[in-house]
Amino acid sequence: MTFFDTVAAEIRKTATLPAAIVALAVTVLGPVAITLINAVGVRAALRSGRPELTAYTSPVEAVFSAVPIGTVGAVVLGVVAVGGEYTTNSARIGGGRQITTTLTATPDRLGVLAAKAVTVVLLVAVAALVVIPASLALAGGIVGTDAPPAPEGVLSRSVGAGIYWLLTALIALAVTVFTRNGIVPIIVLVVNSALVSVSVLLSHLTPLARFLPDLAGMSMFAGDLLAFDDALAPVTGGLVMATWTAGLLALASAVFLRRDA
């Protein structure tokens, strides 16, 4: 049994799980849809001669302010990759969980977790490579010639948004190893990334909040959209978020190795 076999099995396993397909669809279609709405608003404001009606007039910002919805998809994907293992079947069909099958097929637990991480990274990376360029093209096309000149750093912010999704998905995966249940991490992480960011709220209390994984990571793509004064520089923010991710994955591995299945 090679690590390649384990990864191939995990990719097949994830790709045949309806919840994972929904998550991927949200990651791809969500940002495109929000970009569309944002861009139409920007165009309307520009054409009516009242650009002050919108927070920004650049089609690029219409894309980057749509990133959080893609984060939701990435979170769900990371959660279901692990949570699916612990979904308990009803007693009517004999109970049981998939984790017993997974670990009897592949007793190398670190290999299983690593293969899950690789699977999630691959799927999110492919989604990001499709959706971010597509959204930029869409927004540019809608706002058209009315748009102000493109700001600098669109490429690095695009890469940053993709990395933000990847790291968020991995954090979701690690957290689900601790909870062995997808529901709590999905609710907490989706609310935090799409509705009310606990970290943003904390940033009003202490400047240390900028070192929390989501706020640190957002500096990779958010630019002036971040409603926060002393945000970290993009590269620093990315490194801080990556450190959080690595730490949580290491902790998750230690727990997964020692715990009874």
């Binding site: 045949t16 079947n89 069909i93 109970g95």
Partner: peptide, 18 residues
């Protein structure tokens, strides 16, 4: 216990990843 398969996967998909 039980089938050891996730309930929203088909039997064939379960055995295929295995």
């Amino acid at each position: 216990e039980g089938s050891g398969a996730h309930r929203s996967r088909t039997a064939r998909n379960h055995l295929t990843w295995m």
